[in-house]
Structures are given as structure tokens and as C-alpha cells.
Amino acid sequence: MKPRDLPKHLPDTALAAHAREPEDLLSPLLQGPAASLFGSPVEPVQGPVHGVIVGTLLALADNGQTALVSFAGQPGHEALRARSVVDLHGPHMGQGVVLMFEQGDVHKPIVMGVLRGQAAWPLAEQPATVDVDADGQRMVVSAKEQLVLRCGQASITLTRAGKVLIEGAHVLSRASGVNRVKGGSVQLN
């Protein structure tokens, strides 16, 4: 629902509060003619689409499960919801994507892949990312400033400064071998 769809008798404060809903934050990216995204007016795609079309990944919805895409000649003026055969993440937003269409239907795009070598993110800062390196034997998760593992009231926090913070309602340290506590100084209670 957009502010223009609200009843006219609502006070301006209701319209202003509604305008700040999360789906409206993406409105500038998700609406507007395809020409504004691709530079020049393009005729709408007619009939079934066979082959691929290169589009743009505008956003990820439904907790990253649904891609919102746009392409030259798309029907309508809003982003299309698309399924994907590849994992899409925040850094992919703004990049070109290869699209195919279920049974040639231009309203049912499927993201087949992300084009490499593009730095098309439209904002000054890209979304935050965490690097994961896994080879089946070892997994390394890296973050620039802080990494937090959290479950309910328990958490383990690793900071860039080298601090390891373990918090929980109950903390148990158990070892079948030697359990060492070593540091520049050790404080108990």
C-alpha cells in the first residue's frame, strides 16, 4: 500500500508514518520507467522470451529469498520478483544479472547468474559483508570489526582489538585433558 492508496480523511501524520515503512524505502529503486534505469526508452518486450536477457538486481526481499530485478523493456514500471538458481547477497545488488523466463513468460524471471567484473553498486557504501572460507575440513568466518555468535541469552563476541567476550546465564568450561587458564593477570570474581 502506498500513501496515495490511503483514505483521504487520514491526518498527515498517518501519511508521514506510512511513508517510512520498509517497503517504501526501496520505492525509488523499485519504481519508475525502465528507461530511467537503462538510459534510453525501450519498447516493452512482447510475447514469449526465449534466450537470456541481462537485467539488474535491485534488491533482495523475503529475508534474501526473493530477488527484485529490472530489465530494459520489462512490462510495467515496478521491479519484478524473481526466483534464483544462484545464491544472491548484498554485494550483488546493483550488478547485472542473467535472466531467463519460466515458459517464456516475461512476468516470471529466473536469475541464472551474476555478471562478473562489475562494480555497479549505486550508493557510496556497499552493504556490510562477512567472509566465509570453507573447504570441508575447516571453516573461517571473518568480519572487519566484530563477529558475534548469539543464541538466546548466550553470545561469543570477537573484536578487532583482540577481545573475546563470552556471556551467558550459565557458562561451563569442561575438558577431558588439561584445562588451562593463562593470562597477563587472572581475576576470579
Rank of each mutant, 00 (worst) to 15 (best):
L57W: 00
A59N: 02
A59K: 01
A61E: 02
A61P: 14
D62G: 12
N63C: 01
N63P: 01
N63A: 01
N63V: 03
G64F: 01
Q65G: 03
Q65H: 10
T66V: 03
T66R: 08
T66Q: 06
T66H: 05
A67R: 02
A67S: 07
A67W: 03
L68T: 02
L68N: 03
L68I: 07
L68D: 02
V69Q: 00
V69L: 04
V69G: 01
V69I: 08
S70W: 00
S70L: 06
S70M: 09
F71D: 07
F71S: 10
A72V: 10
A72Y: 07
G73H: 10
G73C: 10
G73A: 07
Q74E: 15
Q74F: 11
Q74T: 12
Q74G: 14
Q74N: 13
G76R: 12
G76M: 12
G76H: 09
H77Q: 15
H77S: 15
H77V: 15
H77M: 15
H77I: 15
A79P: 11
L80T: 12
L80W: 13
L80Q: 11
L80G: 14
L80P: 15
R81Y: 05
R81H: 09
R81A: 12
R81E: 08
R81T: 05
A82L: 03
A82G: 05
A82V: 05
R83T: 13
S84F: 08
V85N: 10
V85A: 12
V85W: 08
V86I: 04
V86C: 05
D87T: 02
D87N: 03
L88G: 01
L88P: 01
L88Q: 00
L88V: 00
H89C: 13
H89A: 14
H89G: 14
H89Q: 11
H89R: 10
H89L: 13
G90I: 08
G90C: 08
P91V: 09
P91K: 07
H92F: 04
H92S: 03
M93A: 07
M93R: 06
M93Q: 06
M93P: 05
G94E: 04
G94Y: 03
G94D: 02
Q95I: 06
Q95L: 10
Q95C: 11
Q95D: 12
Q95M: 14
Q95W: 02
G96I: 04
G96L: 07
G96H: 07
V97T: 05
V97I: 09
V98D: 05
V98H: 04
V98T: 11
V98K: 09
V98S: 09
L99C: 02
M100S: 15
M100I: 14
F101R: 00
E102W: 12
E102H: 14
E102P: 06
E102N: 15
E102S: 10
Q103K: 15
Q103V: 14
G104A: 13
G104E: 09
G104R: 14
G104D: 11
G104F: 10
D105Y: 03
D105H: 02
D105G: 05
D105R: 08
D105E: 06
V106Y: 00
V106I: 10
V106P: 08
H107S: 13
H107I: 11
H107V: 09
